[in-house]
Simulated assay, not measured.
Amino acid sequence: MSDLLLLTRIAGRPAAFRAGDIGSIVELTEITPVPRAPDFIAGLAALRSRALTVIDSRKALGLLGPSETTDMRAPVVEVAGHSYALLVDRVDDVVPAAGEPAPTPATLGACWAQVAHGMIETASGPAVLVDVAALVAGPGETAA
């Protein structure tokens, strides 16, 4: 695999997204909460006259505890014709993949296994290769 990857951190763990799945990186300045939305939906944000649903990646994995988000930059993805911004701890770099994805180890945990294409090696070390549609679907859900 010679694809480019966007390296991020989610819940302190290195996580990679295929660069082709990322439309842009935006800086979120204001997130408007949505009443009665599932917990993993942080709210809505505006991007050039369109609404983005903001997904809290940590909560979408079903992880408990406070968010460690210190970077207000968010990858923007499109799933089934809808745009989403993904809250991550931080956005690190764009790097080439150093090989093909390997199976996800059992020690990673069920929350990560449900959104992982596998583990991918990069020059920065191994990272979980994230399935964007599965992450956007939220905890315990299946991707459309």
Score class of each variant (00 low, 15 high):
M1S: 15
L4W: 14
L6G: 04
L7E: 02
L7P: 02
R9Q: 13
I10D: 03
G12A: 06
P14I: 05
A15H: 03
F17C: 04
R18D: 09
R18E: 11
A19V: 10
G20C: 02
D21W: 04
D21I: 04
D21Q: 14
I22M: 08
G23E: 15
S24G: 01
I25M: 13
I25D: 06
V26L: 10
T29E: 09
I31R: 00
T32A: 12
P33Y: 09
V34L: 12
A42E: 13
A42P: 10
G43W: 12
G43S: 13
G43I: 12
L44N: 03
R48A: 15
R50A: 11
R50L: 11
A51V: 15
V54W: 02
V54R: 04
D56Q: 02
S57A: 15
S57F: 03
R58T: 03
G62A: 07
L63K: 07
L64G: 12
G65T: 09
P66T: 08
S67Q: 05
R73T: 10
R73K: 12
P75T: 08
P75E: 04
P75G: 04
A85K: 01
L87K: 01
L87G: 01
R90Y: 00
D92H: 04
D92L: 11
D93G: 05
P96Y: 09
P96R: 13
A98F: 03
E100I: 10
E100D: 15
T104W: 07
P105Y: 12
P105H: 13
L108F: 12
L108N: 06
A110E: 14
C111L: 00
W112Y: 14
A113L: 08
H117M: 11
I120M: 05
S124D: 12
P126G: 02
P126Q: 12
A127D: 07
V128L: 09
V130L: 10
V132L: 09
V132P: 10
A134C: 05
L135V: 07
V136Q: 04
A137Y: 08
A137Q: 09
P139C: 03
E141T: 01
A144E: 07
A144K: 05
